[in-house]
Design a protein around this nucleic acid. Structure first.
Length: 663
DNA sequence: CTAGGGTTAG
């Protein structure tokens, strides 16, 4: 149902009379607005270029529908306008994702002979089909083009990436390199190739593309290298040195800085990310920080638990008036949640103007991580009321919140509702949450049946959740089953050996404890270095087990000794059951005394403002002895201690910890 | 003269 506009020389006082057309073109109201635009621009109907400029202008001003209407008017007024106006019209159809309009334009291009001979129309046509999620239609058209030029091939390649056909895209790029001299690989082509390589698991792709563009001489080109940095970031590559080297020598723009900061942030190198952010602001050579930079650096603060730095960045967000921005706002929510300030997170959340599904998810997750399940579910209810439909990710947040808060009935309810009411198939993440929830609640058999019935392939997280539950509820039989599966998936993770040994020890099965201990020895299982970090006056301090690298370490150890004495007077008994190594009891106790959590807490007690919250980040799970120790330290010092580990927040304040493992 | 281009969030 569409109309063609009247010729612009006779402006209608009333809406233009309706005229039937095949389909796909816009309605009369838009026609009126497009006419207005034409008058503002003073189009000369006799000049085809004038028409095409009008179409392009309307498109770039964001009114794709008006651009299409104007195209229709142009062709009617002057058939010669078809050739120059067709490419921007196709782009307008792409922007409006109007397949009907696009197909009509395709037909027009065929009838007028512009397709496949005119490369400008051809590339725009492929672009249109890809934007309308019709990659195979694009493919059919592409195959009809006798000798596609690099622009056309790049249009095809980027469309494949857009439609998740990454390997098709890389194939085109490979053919491009092989067929001709490498000179056809221009900036846009290289860019698309990197955006494709960012989406494949094989990291070798990025590295080999890197070598190629170095050969062509694009290594300083901001556009190309920025995409490459992203590609390195997505792959979780450990080889950040190579990326940093390029960054240091290239001609950097805002995006380069943002990409490099994000690269560090996404790979857990928070200090580097924050450092680079400061460098950008201070010596970036006139580079202005923007919303993307703020989001990236907030992620780094969240990861490192750097609340002071995070607050500073938040101030910057407020100064720049970006509190309402949905991306930045969501990052602020995430940062405050992960830094243990869920009230601040909630305040920031309320400031976001147009909350999207991820904003809501972040807030649900925030409450969930802190064991505040009811509030998480209230946010979830509010989200649904606002008209947003929960998706796969939302239900991960909801079920995780239920599991962290031990809300068994609610968790069961929403798990079923997810499938029945919302038609979402449960994935490994959902199963992981449910196994954790059921397992902690003691419904071990139900958890086990759930794993057996799941369609998706079970992963280590799921069996690991079941194993932890077996520890809490002392189920040796199921623990052995879980460990068998875990060893098939990843036999090198020391955590499983420790848990199983704990379970045997608590059941008094000392022969089996011995067997596991031997296994650890013969398999040469190494515990990855655990660390605890704490932020003081904006600086982050990292402690490993028995760490002596800190200049104050002598004071820290003697402070800790005194603290331990007072703790033992208060009734603390070291829990040596979780130590696997072959040590006597006394050696075990001294091994426990120097756990990184204890060093970090001693350091924080010595140096922080009295009364302030001590917030520690642990890269592995907190051990049961440290958990017990923190309860006593809280009692003695009357300081609030929060430890965030891989799994959840541990709040040490009068039985507040919701982890259920150790209380 | 016109066409193909990327970074942030669980």
């Amino acid at each position: 149902m569409a109309t063609l506009p009247n010729p612009p020389s006779t402006p209608p006082a009333h809406p233009a009379p309706q005229r039937q057309r095949e389909s796909g073109f816009p309605s009369s109201t838009t026609t009126a607005s497009s006419l207005r635009a034409l008058f503002l621009r003073a189009v000369d109907p006799s000049r085809p270029a004038s028409w095409s400029a009008a179409v392009a202008d309307l498109l770039s001003s964001g009114d794709a529908v008006a651009a299409l209407a104007t195209f229709a008017a142009a062709v009617r007024a002057n058939p010669a306008a078809l050739r120059p106006a067709l490419p921007p019209a196709l782009r307008a159809a792409a922007a409006a994702t109007s397949l009907a309009a696009g197909r009509q334009l395709h037909l027009l291009a065929l009838r007028s002979g512009l397709f496949p001979s005119d490369p400008y129309s051809a590339s725009a046509l492929l672009h249109m089909y890809h934007h309308c999620s019709r990659p195979m239609d694009a493919r059919r058209a592409f195959d009809e083009i006798p000798d596609p030029n690099p622009v056309i091939i790049t249009a095809m390649a980027s469309g494949y990436v857009r439609n998740n056909l990454v390997y098709h895209s890389l194939d085109l790029f490979r053919a491009m390199i092989a067929s001709d001299s490498a000179s056809v690989v221009d900036e846009a082509a290289a860019l698309v190739a990197f955006s494709a390589s960012a989406r494949v698991p094989d990291r070798g792709v990025t590295a080999s593309l890197h070598a190629l563009i170095a050969k062509i001489g694009f290594e300083r080109n901001a556009g190309v290298v920025n995409t490459m940095l992203d590609s390195y970031a997505k792959g979780g590559s450990r080889d950040l040195e190579a990326a940093r080297k390029v960054f240091d020598t290239m001609e950097r723009d805002v995006v380069s800085w943002n990409s490099m900061i994000a690269l560090y942030a996404q790979n857990g190198m928070s200090a580097e990310a924050i450092g680079l952010y400061s460098k950008m602001i201070n010596v970036g050579g006139g580079i202005k920080c923007n919303a993307v930079a703020l989001s990236a650096v907030l992620l780094a603060c969240a990861h490192a638990g750097s609340i002071q730095t995070g607050k500073r960045i938040h101030n910057q967000v407020v100064r720049m008036g970006l509190e309402e921005n949905v991306y930045v706002g969501t990052s602020v929510v995430d940062m405050y949640s992960k830094c243990g300030r869920v009230e601040m997170a909630s305040k920031a959340f309320r400031k976001i103007k147009e909350k999207n599904i991820l904003s809501w998810s972040a807030m649900i997750t925030g409450y969930g991580m802190h064991g505040r399940g009811q509030e998480a579910l209230e946010i979830f209810t509010e989200m649904k009321r606002s008209g947003l439909r929960p998706n796969y990710i939302t239900f991960i947040s909801v079920l995780a919140a239920c599991s962290h808060a031990g809300l068994l009935d609610e968790g069961r309810y929403w798990y079923n509702a997810m499938k029945q009411e919302f038609g979402i198939e449960a994935g490994v993440e959902h199963y992981g949450c449910m196994v954790d929830l059921l397992g902690r609640a003691g419904c071990l058999d139900e958890a086990y049946s759930l794993i057996k019935e799941m369609k998706a392939k079970s992963d280590a997280a799921i069996w690991g959740a079941l194993l932890s539950a077996c520890r809490i509820h002392k189920n040796v039989e199921l623990a052995e089953i879980s460990v068998k599966r875990l060893f098939e998936l990843d036999a090198s993770n020391s955590g499983y050996y420790v848990l199983l040994s704990n379970i045997y020890a608590e059941a008094g099965m000392w022969k089996d404890v011995e067997r596991i201990r031997l296994l650890v020895k013969t398999r040469r299982i190494e515990k990855p270095p655990g660390y605890s970090s704490v932020e003081l006056k904006g600086k982050t301090y990292l402690f490993y087990v028995g760490d002596k690298s800190h200049p104050q370490h002598m004071e820290i150890y003697s402070y800790l000794e005194k603290l331990l004495e007072r703790m033992q007077e208060a009734g603390y008994v070291p829990n040596t059951g979780s130590i696997l190594h072959d040590l006597d009891e006394e050696e075990k106790e001294s091994a426990l005394r120097i756990h990184s959590e204890k060093l970090a807490v001693a350091f924080a007690l010595m140096n922080s403002v009295p009364g302030s919250v001590i917030h520690i980040i642990k890269n592995l799970r907190i051990c049961s002895d440290c958990h017990t120790a923190m309860k006593f330290i809280t009692k003695i010092t009357e300081r609030e201690i929060i430890i965030r580990d891989l799994q959840r927040f541990h709040h040490f304040k009068e039985g507040l910890c919701s982890c259920q493992d150790y209380w």
